[in-house]
Design a protein around this nucleic acid. Structure first.
Lengths: 214, 214
DNA sequence: TAGATTGTTAATCGATTAACAATC
DNA sequence: TAGATTGTTAATCGATTAACAATC
């Protein structure tokens, strides 16, 4: 255990380790060394040991890591054991798809309420989640104090709604709108920019003059 | 213009510049200096100039950059001017949401066909895109040679379908399944791992002992 | 015990930032 | 012209990799 400051690069690798350990576990693997794990995941053993060392000592010399234990530790680091409430803003196509497909509970998030402005959606229930009128947002937050809000609203509504949510005490925004949100810096914004993602793919497949490196 | 090899970090910033320049343009701004752009976007002027210098010289000393021109250049670098065909695999909730909401044409992608296995969906049309039976995939590819395939299928189907698409000549996979695909290294995979993204947010908002740095 | 593998320190590599001559 | 700002080289910073003593 050594660092105070954990870099973004390290944090973004943790969920991948977490996912991969889960897969190994479900295949019945009990223990693994950093070198074997690294070979399978396409990273160096050094990087895995270095990453983990930011948070503690989870292995054993001569043995490696117990998969169940390590996975649990990473889960704990990521905070999946701390129940936090989450709300979804915007139950259109994308919001609806998330409500249907995405397992929020697996990340430790409690979700029972979404919000929308459309009268056609208000009052309906999707996968156990009730859609409320956006006007009920303040009252809901006053009682339930959601930690995270998912933004799947039209871009025009995003910034204003983000500010409102921050004022209501939300600590993180999972932003699916194609907008650069500017909010108080104590609030964390995680962007899922589909367009940016697809454009990087566009760049890679486009036939440039001097392409190198696969 | 200097480099041969363009780092991933640079490539991932390009769409953001592209997007921001678009916004400035729509606000009527005609020119901008790297220092002003950097201040607004929260990056250094050096980084912007360094990034752009990988691809050419787009500015003018004493003036800065013409926004329309620079945006067009970045678009060209990203390949948005090269029409490429794209197909969507899986027209469930998420696939459907993308078909409805996402503007594939803006990235230069031609989309007219999606594929699914569900008889309830086959034959239907969503936002001008016709849903075909997965059995028609080979015939379609033989004729239309899609460059990119969007994977919005259940995780169990992902790997096998990816391999099939690669064999059919697809050059890039936009992967929304929560699976680490292993395909031929000449094919580019761009992952959109919702779960990983939410877990990083989970980490940041969780109350750790010694939190620092905002 | 001997072999294996960790956690950590040191070395290397790459990416970001700073500085500045060139020039519009 | 004088002021501003680029493109690029050099300096710095941070992240990744290598090495190895500690030890299970």
């Amino acid at each position: 255990m050594k660092k105070q400051y954990i870099s973004d690069a390290v944090i973004r690798r943790l969920p991948r380790y977490y996912r991969y350990l889960d897969e190994l576990h479900s295949r019945g693997v009990v223990r693994i060394s950093s070198s074997t794990l690294g070979r399978r995941m396409g990273v160096t053993a050094s990087q895995i040991r270095q990453d983990l060392s930011c948070f503690g000592e989870f292995g054993q010399q001569g043995y490696g890591y117990n998969i169940i234990e390590l996975r649990a530790e990473i889960g704990r680091i990521l905070g999946v054991n701390e129940p936090r409430r989450l709300i979804v803003l915007g139950a259109g196509h994308l919001g609806h798809a998330l409500l249907q497909n995405f397992d929020f509970a697996q990340g430790g998030f409690l979700l029972d309420t979404a919000f929308d402005v459309s009268p056609a959606l208000i009052g309906r229930s999707v996968n156990g989640v009730t859609i409320h009128a956006l006007g009920d947002l303040d009252a809901y937050c006053a009682v339930n104090h959601p930690a995270v809000a998912v933004l799947t609203v039209p871009r025009a509504a995003a910034q204003e709604l983000a500010e409102r949510l921050v004022a209501l005490g939300v600590r993180g925004l999972w932003n699916f709108t194609n907008v650069e949100l500017s909010v108080d810096e104590t609030v964390f914004v995680e962007n899922v920019h589909f367009a940016d993602s697809l454009l990087t793919l566009s760049y890679r497949i486009s036939k440039k003059a001097g392409v190198e490196r696969t």
